[in-house]
Design a protein around this nucleic acid. Sequence first.
DNA 1: AATGTCGATATCGATAGGCTATACAAGAAA
DNA 2: TTTCTTGTATAGCCTATCGATATCGACATT
Lengths: 109, 109
Amino acid sequence: MNKPSEVLQGTLDLMILRTLELRPMHGVGVAERIRQVTNGVFVVKAGSLFPALHRLEGKGWLESQWGQTEEGRRAKLYTLTRAGKAQLAAEKRNFRRVFHAMNQVLEGE
Amino acid sequence: MNKPSEVLQGTLDLMILRTLELRPMHGVGVAERIRQVTNGVFVVKAGSLFPALHRLEGKGWLESQWGQTEEGRRAKLYTLTRAGKAQLAAEKRNFRRVFHAMNQVLEGE
DNA sequence: AATGTCGATATCGATAGGCTATACAAGAAA
DNA sequence: TTTCTTGTATAGCCTATCGATATCGACATT
């Protein structure tokens, strides 16, 4: 990611899980989609992306297999596992909880 | 902070600046207020708090002077500077921007 | 005086996640 | 063959936070 990591860290996993919930995708595809839907606010660089994918796979939240992109290029396709869906739900809940708390600080009194 | 740092990092500065916007306070008081208004979601530990206060003071966003707490105990009182107010406004804007982008990822499609 | 303890401030080492830079493989294009 | 592009991968660094620990002053107890 670019600078916004100064403001929001640890949300990369959540964004990746959520993106792969929509459909299986290859690594670069995940990063592209995140950049598009956030209008460039989040730009996930390869050096952040692949370590994160491996981390998530290591925890059993993703599965991968070699396949190809829509353009027919060789690529590794990542799929959200059942455990990954549960993790996604948990992280979503936690994100909302944390954001609500943050808003209490910003708007309170 | 306790575990939620896994979800939201880099927002400690913002929370401190915002808390000191309300009124000058001593370090422990800042941490206490954050814990209260977030119902314990954010618990800022001393090992995070004081380095952050020094960091913010070093950047000219806070000023400090020795005084005492409401209970009459010796303490260092922190005050938001003019530059600190500008920084707070900027970080607030950025937080909302980042949160909005995050929501696009979570809710989109 | 000596000791204890409480509130508050402070720092150190470890950890973790993200970033930059770089590298490598494979197919397309020249 | 060489070059370019796409996609994957990793090594090294940086920085914020945490847990643990230390210090300091005021006050109480002995």
